[in-house]
Nucleic acid binder design. Sequence first.
DNA 1: TATTTTAATCGAAACGTTTTAATTTATTTT
DNA 2: AAAATAAATTAAAACGTTTCGATTAAAATA
Lengths: 344, 344
Amino acid sequence: MATTIKDIARKAGVSISTVSLVLNHKGYVADETREKILSIIKEMDYKPLHSARKLATQKTGNMGYILWEGHFSEVEMFYSQVFLGMEYAARKNDYYILLTTVNDHFDPRQDLPRFLKYNDVDGVALAGRVPLDLIHYLDKHAIPFVLVDYEVPGKNYNTIKIDNYNGAFRAVEFLIEQGRRHISFVGGTFIHPSIKERYRGYKDALEKHGLLNNSYLEAYSYCENVETSRAIGEKGIKKLLKSRPEIDGVFCCNDTTALGVLSGIQSMGKTIPEDVAVIGFDDIPPAEFSSPKLSTVSVPKLDIGKEAYKLLYEQIYNPNIMPQTRIISVDLVIRESSQTKNKP
Amino acid sequence: MATTIKDIARKAGVSISTVSLVLNHKGYVADETREKILSIIKEMDYKPLHSARKLATQKTGNMGYILWEGHFSEVEMFYSQVFLGMEYAARKNDYYILLTTVNDHFDPRQDLPRFLKYNDVDGVALAGRVPLDLIHYLDKHAIPFVLVDYEVPGKNYNTIKIDNYNGAFRAVEFLIEQGRRHISFVGGTFIHPSIKERYRGYKDALEKHGLLNNSYLEAYSYCENVETSRAIGEKGIKKLLKSRPEIDGVFCCNDTTALGVLSGIQSMGKTIPEDVAVIGFDDIPPAEFSSPKLSTVSVPKLDIGKEAYKLLYEQIYNPNIMPQTRIISVDLVIRESSQTKNKP
DNA sequence: TATTTTAATCGAAACGTTTTAATTTATTTT
DNA sequence: AAAATAAATTAAAACGTTTCGATTAAAATA
């Protein structure tokens, strides 16, 4: 069969312990023997058998990545990218990321992902909004976990956050700088904290520039209490434009919505960006291919995945460390949908 | 620590061998003892440690799922759904599916997914178009694999195919039955066999109904030699409509393209389906939310994943079985984009 | 009844690592 | 030169299963 650590030891004329030591960069071993062993390993193309290693170390070498079914299979590609980022980062330590989904009706006794049921992961990353019961389960069973782009009010868990507030603030401020004066907000449910934060950034930017009066938000924002989608965006902006034709800028809670907003505006005979400027959030791939190309707040999805991995890894190997929150900063990227209104 | 097989054996007053036998449904064990052991297992919530089991059985309990980076992270959600289907099916046998991507510049010596490098999978599924060198590597190393929605000309590998030809044929025939007479095709690169087959179905349907003359295909099809995208669809149909304003139906190589076609037609001031009927292929989620809602050939993505899993599983446990091809049939689903042209 | 077959159970080896503690060898300190 | 310390190596135990072959008990056959 495949070559084992024994074969290496025999050929190198040492014990398997020594080979193991060089493999794991531990203990003392003479430079000379190390070199010899290393070269034999390469020569025989030896690869430690992971299941044996795992049995001995009592680690699984796996991390879980859980997300809501809808986010994976439906409209969002955001979290797939985050997954990829984790997967890339995990290569360094030979971790595998096991991806699975949970759905809305989650009962820990029944619907627990099997890598949790069978203790096949050392920790898990939770992407986006996931059932609270799942979080509680992990907490209770002391399984290391990190929340990605989500948070639980009043609880202090390990979290990777996007700088939603500043991203939104900056985007809206940009619209104002470009001469827009009637800027509306289109979004979905506020269950997701990210969206709430983006709304707050929107509001504060308006306020800073003295655009916010009593009835402003009521008149200029459209939020429906469902998951975001193109359809919501299209429907929302149409309704807004009908009652407020003076709208000349839209900040959307995310790109998916923004793409719908684009269609909505166009279907009402207005042009983008001349009549209405639009900025989204996330920078998902289709944003580059829309017409006009969508300006947006770009979120570094791969980096998020990478940070999630790193944080989770630290938690696994230092279980007593305090929970941390890391904030990933974002960039405003200007494409076509938000050009200057009035060139000076 | 966690309860082990020893704990179960001790409590049941039997040897660990016996416990193992009932766990694996092997050998003879008296009904009475089986019941007893089973109930103790449940009572103590015993879960066999996978790494130990894997070490003993010399199986990894993992399958790989490899797809081209672009397909995962960019516009396509098709293969994500297939993955989900595999993941669902894998639950039955406690297999884990390890997802990873490869990119265009693939060198087996460098870019081999690490689950292959470290022999951490019992077999792999290849989704869509993947580098030929990868396939050759698997073939050479006798690693069980199945191709999903792809094939290599002249080679007889395990394959899950979509019934592209008949799906396309049926879609186009439907357009004809509805009174359409100038039906064009919009697509991307023919590198992918599926697209080639869909084109063939398109052509044959036209021919069957006597619509195909010498210059037809040239005049009415638009194919660009790049990956399919919305942009291609939009660009393609605009160009076609300019030279052939009589076009009253479009069959698209897939939904992504079709969504672009929808925008393209609308941006030229025509209405769907009154002026032009559109049918796509794949039935990706956004097809349900476009306006008008996209008629399409629905491909059961979860089923594909499930079949891929089953075929791969069979290959792993019967390595000497002949390579098989399984064809997944498709359904024409009529939504709004293809209504009857002339009601009688 | 003695023998063979079948059913039920078990002891022990095997799977390929890591790790602890012991041992040997080399180096430094007194 | 002896004693103490540090460096290098190793034997053996441990990780938790499966499985092979042996053993015993019960049932079927002669």
